[in-house]
Design a protein around this nucleic acid. Structure first.
Lengths: 225, 225
DNA sequence: TCAAAAGTGTTGACGGTACACCCATGT
DNA sequence: ACATGGGTGTACCGTCAACACTTTTGA
């Protein structure tokens, strides 16, 4: 018998800042009092693990993510000094602008931090390891799955989408080639509207989820970047 | 509090039969008495989850796999009629010829079954779902990670390796092109020996693990097929 | 000598990178 | 007018699928 917990690495992206952030909680109780920790908590007896992850996330931060997926289960015997706790880690994606500041919730000491900051201070438990694995997964999966869209508001320009990919992958992408590839995938639905950007207005698009479902069901595997 | 178990989908491949098999156990006790089930068991209090998976596998079947990796954690509240049991599923690879017949072990009712057979009879718990996910993972990951080698004996011919890929991916691969690709990856170490195959003898190779480590550390991502 | 697998060569189609180039707008 | 990002065109180049071909063996 062991305690089973669900922890969540929530990635947020701000189109204005062009920055990837992660949602962390300031611990107010031992162990690791004062450290930053991932949101999460114990799985109740009658709920699924994923439901527990979503529930804990909303209780602690008020966030309902656009995307959530199980990442890995961490279960070293000594990972929690209080006893045997197995953590089923998840990662989630959200457009950060819709959730700043974190609304008055159970624990309003949740906040968005730049990823790099997580390496300059100790995190609670093995949460740094979890964060690193989540980042690896995000970087790997964004290449062939439409994760980038979940980091943006519903409507976005192709440049914003390119910046998401550039930020996550940490490399510069050629604007012309990116545009062609992404349009070729047929996953963007033009809204007809344009956004003034200071210079030439850019077309706004939405993610065509219906089309994605159809394509992936017909055994087609995309390569977005 | 819940019970945490580790279950393992062991894939075995026989070069002679050119068939992918899975290791299943005949259940002798309720629930699901008489059904086939994946090997596995409860994680002890002082061992890591992966250690539990390896221990259970050896206890129940005598097998120490060449490759083992965590797959996914299954935790629907009703997946086990006896109570809340969370299963951390793994998958493992092994060359089947080295393990037939299963030696006299704790439960000698373990045996290798063709994958297709698992769809013609009910499996215990949610083990069919686990098996399907493991198969998806194997098919996906073999494209960019050197999993094929773990399904063969230490020395093998390129044709045997091609047959592994063909079997797992369920498609015919062009012999000439496959050979070129796999040799270009530099992951094969020639042994200098040859094997009489009935026709023209084929060169024997080994997997060059040291080279693989070096290549993957230097940020290089292969595409084997 | 023939069949079959091992192994090599070649060609043509395709796709993507790199870059030059227009377009539309605010200042 | 011009700077800047939005958006389009294109030419070169590498890669790979397809398939012909040679080699080596057992029968």
């Amino acid at each position: 018998m062991a305690t089973v917990a669900a922890d969540i690495v929530v990635f947020g992206y701000s189109p204005e800042e062009v920055t990837l952030r992660v949602l962390m909680i300031h611990r107010k109780v031992p162990p690791f009092k004062g450290s930053l920790a991932l949101p999460g908590g114990v799985v109740e007896n009658d709920e699924s693990i994923e439901a527990a992850a979503l529930r804990e996330l909303e209780e602690e931060t008020g966030i309902k993510p656009d995307f959530l997926e199980q990442l890995y289960t961490f279960g070293e015997p000594d990972r929690d000094p209080r006893g045997r706790v197995i953590s089923v880690a998840h990662y989630a994606l959200v457009s950060v602008e819709r959730f700043t500041p974190v609304a008055g919730t159970d624990a309003a000491d949740a906040d968005w931090y730049p990823i790099e900051d997580m390496y300059t201070q100790p995190l609670a438990f093995d949460h740094l390891k979890i964060l690193e694995m989540a980042l690896d997964r995000l970087r790997g999966k964004i290449l062939y799955a439409p994760l980038g869209f979940d980091l943006l508001p519903k409507q976005f320009t192709i440049t914003e989408l390119r910046q998401v990919y550039g930020t996550v992958l940490n490399e510069d992408l050629d604007p012309g080639n990116f545009r062609r590839r992404i349009l070729k995938s047929k996953l963007l639905k033009p809204t007809g509207e344009k956004r003034a950007t200071g210079y030439k207005p850019a077309c706004l698009y939405e993610f065509d989820e219906a089309r994605y479902e159809k394509l992936s069901k017909s055994g087609w595997n995309i390569e977005l970047v």
